[in-house]
């Protein structure tokens, strides 16, 4: 075997260069959406003890629901659970149109998902972790949030809704 240079057909070389540019363009588009339009994926927020997160009086999820923190700005603490039945607590929250809602979701039992239809809020919910994303609701209507990770027999019926009033 002799050491020789790599021979690459000119068409194929151009194809490789083009592929590289194409992927670079896609990567740039993603970066623009992430850093220019604030469309971001979840970041580590807080770790909790799944054994006590739903019952400890100091835990916001012992009393899940909506808190108004400033005019038009809300924090929504939501518990996703499979025991004793498959549900989100609370099942429904209501906010006026234009509200900016930050969701803090965790699970006291198995893994769940949380996806608010027609928004970019879509994340995993893990016991021991808090998942956080923010959504601004610019149009009135009912936005279902649904469970997107298999969590047992009742997975398919697990959902809730954000009601956005005009």
């Amino acid at each position: 075997m002799s050491a020789q240079n790599m021979h690459i057909d000119s068409y194929e070389r151009n194809w490789m260069i083009f592929s590289f540019i194409l992927l670079a363009v896609f990567a740039s588009a993603i970066a623009v959406a992430a850093f220019g339009m604030e469309i971001q994926v979840p970041a580590p927020e807080e770790r909790v003890d799944p054994g006590t997160v739903a019952t400890d009086p100091n835990s916001p999820w012992s009393n899940p629901g909506l808190r108004e923190i400033a005019p038009g700005k809300y924090d929504a603490y939501i518990l996703a659970r499979a025991v004793p039945q498959w549900e989100y607590l609370p099942k429904e929250i209501t906010v006026p149109v234009g509200s900016r809602v930050t969701f803090y979701v965790t699970s006291p039992d198995v893994q769940h998902g949380f996806k608010i239809q027609d928004t970019n809020a879509n994340f995993m919910v893990l016991p021991g972790q808090v998942s956080k994303l923010t959504v601004t609701f610019d149009k009135p209507g009912a936005y279902n949030f649904i469970c997107t990770e298999f969590c047992g027999a009742g997975h398919g019926v697990m959902y809730g809704a954000v009601i956005v009033t005009p």
Partner: peptide
């Protein structure tokens, strides 16, 4: 090259469509 040009056009169209859905659904921060 012809086959791959067709592929790339399809790729850009589909990827672009999904990207526009993403942009249309708004920020998360």
């Amino acid at each position: 090259v012809t086959v791959l040009v067709i592929f790339v056009i399809t790729l850009i169209a589909i990827w672009g469509t999904i990207y526009m859905i993403l942009v249309g659904r708004g920020g998360t921060l």
